[in-house]
C-alpha cells in the first residue's frame, strides 16, 4: 500500500486529487495537514483521513509521498520540508512564483534524492494526448504557429491576493499552455511578449486578470497564448483550454474540455455545460503513485515546473519593460 498525504486544501484541485487517491487501488490517503485547521478538519472528514495539525508531526508519520496544494507562495517551504523528510512530492502548479524559488525547490529535492513532480494534469487530457499523437504521427508536418487560450472564471480568494498567489491570471494560466507546448513539440520557449492587466475585476481585486502573450519557441515557432479570468459568472462553464496548430500539411484544433452536454435548467435560469470527458487528474495521480512506488521522478518533473515558471516570469518582466524578453 502506497501512503500519500495531502498538504493544504487551499487550491481547489486538492479535492479532485483526494478523490483520485481514494479511487485508485493500492493507494491510501493516510493524512491531511492544512495551516487552516478548520478547512483541514472538514476535508479530513470528507475524504476519510485523519487531520494532523502539526506540520512536523504530519511529516513524521508513515508516509511515502505528499501532494502539496497550498497557496502558490507557500510551495517552496512545504516542498523543502517534505524533501527533508525524505518524501516524494507532487506540487500544484505553478511550481513557484519566482525562478529563484523554483530552482531552490528542484535543488532541494535532488539533494534529498526524492522525486518532485509538477501537477500539469492537462498532459493526461485525452483530447490533448490525441492531438499530440496526431502531431507526432508526422501527418501534419512541421508546426509553424500555435494560438492557445486558457480562459477561466475568476477564482477569487487568495488567487487574487498577490502576496499569496504571486500574480493573477497570467501567473495561474500561463504555465498550462507553456507546459503543453513544451511536451507536445519537444521544444523550449525562447522569447515572450506580454500585455497584461486587471481588465475585468478592478472593483474586487488588484492582480492582473488577463495576459495576452506572443511567444517564440526554438526553431522560430510563433505562439500566442491568452491566460485569463475573463469568463463571467453567467458563462456556462469554468473556462477552456484550446489550441490551434498551423502546420505544414494542415491545421489541427483542440478544445480540451469540449466534451459536454448543454443543460437548460429553469431553477438556475441559466444554461450550463455538464462535462462528461475523462478526468485528466486520474492519470496525473496514477503516475505520481507509480513514481513513489518505483522510486523514480514523476513523468512531469520539477524541471518542467521550473521551465514553465521561467516563461511566466518572462511574461511579467515583458509587461513591465514593454519589450519582448528572452527566456
Amino acid at each position: 500500500m502506497t501512503k500519500i498525504g495531502i498538504m493544504s486544501f487551499a487550491h481547489m484541485h486538492a479535492h479532485s486529487y483526494a478523490e483520485c487517491l481514494n479511487r485508485l487501488p493500492g493507494v491510501e490517503l493516510v493524512a491531511i495537514w492544512d495551516d487552516d485547521a478548520k478547512r483541514g478538519r472538514k476535508m479530513a472528514k470528507e475524504f476519510g483521513a485523519p487531520f494532523v495539525k502539526d506540520r512536523d508531526k504530519f511529516l513524521a508519520r508513515e508516509l511515502d509521498g505528499v501532494i502539496i496544494t497550498a497557496e502558490n507562495v507557500k510551495h517552496r517551504a512545504l516542498v523543502e520540508a517534505a524533501a527533508a523528510a525524505g518524501l516524494w512530492i507532487l506540487c500544484e502548479k505553478p511550481l513557484a512564483t519566482t525562478v529563484k524559488d523554483a530552482k531552490a525547490m528542484v535543488k532541494a529535492c535532488k539533494k534529498a534524492k526524492i522525486g518532485l513532480g509538477t501537477a500539469f494534469p492537462c498532459r493526461y487530457s485525452l483530447p490533448l494526448m490525441t492531438a499530440k499523437d496526431m502531431l507526432d504521427s508526422g501527418a501534419y508536418g512541421e508546426v509553424y504557429s500555435v494560438a492557445c487560450t486558457n480562459h477561466g472564471q475568476s477564482p477569487g480568494g487568495w488567487f487574487a491576493d498577490e502576496a499569496l498567489s504571486g500574480g493573477g491570471a497570467t501567473m495561474d494560466h500561463t504555465v498550462h499552455g507553456v507546459d503543453l507546448l513544451r511536451w507536445m513539440l519537444g521544444k523550449e520557449f525562447t522569447q515572450v511578449y506580454c500585455e497584461l492587466g486587471n481588465q475585468f475585476h478592478k472593483e474586487t481585486m488588484k492582480t492582473d486578470d488577463l495576459g495576452s502573450m506572443n511567444m517564440e519557441m526554438e526553431g522560430g515557432i510563433q505562439v500566442s497564448h491568452i491566460a485569463s479570468w475573463s469568463r463571467p459568472q453567467s458563462f456556462p462553464t469554468w473556462g477552456d483550454v484550446t489550441m490551434e496548430f498551423i502546420c505544414e500539411n494542415g491545421v489541427l484544433n483542440v478544445d480540451a474540455f469540449n466534451q459536454k452536454v448543454i443543460v437548460y435548467n429553469d431553477k438556475t435560469k441559466h444554461a450550463g455545460w455538464a462535462a462528461w470527458g475523462d478526468n485528466p487528474d486520474l492519470g496525473l495521480i496514477l503516475d505520481f503513485v507509480s513514481a513513489v512506488r518505483d522510486k523514480r521522478d514523476p513523468v512531469i518533473s520539477g524541471i518542467d515546473g521550473l521551465r514553465a515558471t521561467e516563461v511566466t516570469a518572462a511574461a511579467y518582466k515583458s509587461s513591465k519593460t514593454k519589450k519582448a524578453v528572452k527566456v
Binding site: 506580454c194 492587466g197 481588465q199
Partner: peptide
C-alpha cells in the same frame, strides 16, 4: 498566419488573429 496583441490608449487589450493558412 498573423497573431497580434495590441494595447489601446484606454487600456483595453486586443488579441487579433488572421489566417490564410487553412
Amino acid at each position: 498566419y498573423s497573431q497580434v496583441t495590441m494595447r489601446m490608449k484606454n487600456d483595453v487589450i486586443a488579441t487579433i488573429i488572421g489566417t490564410w493558412a487553412h
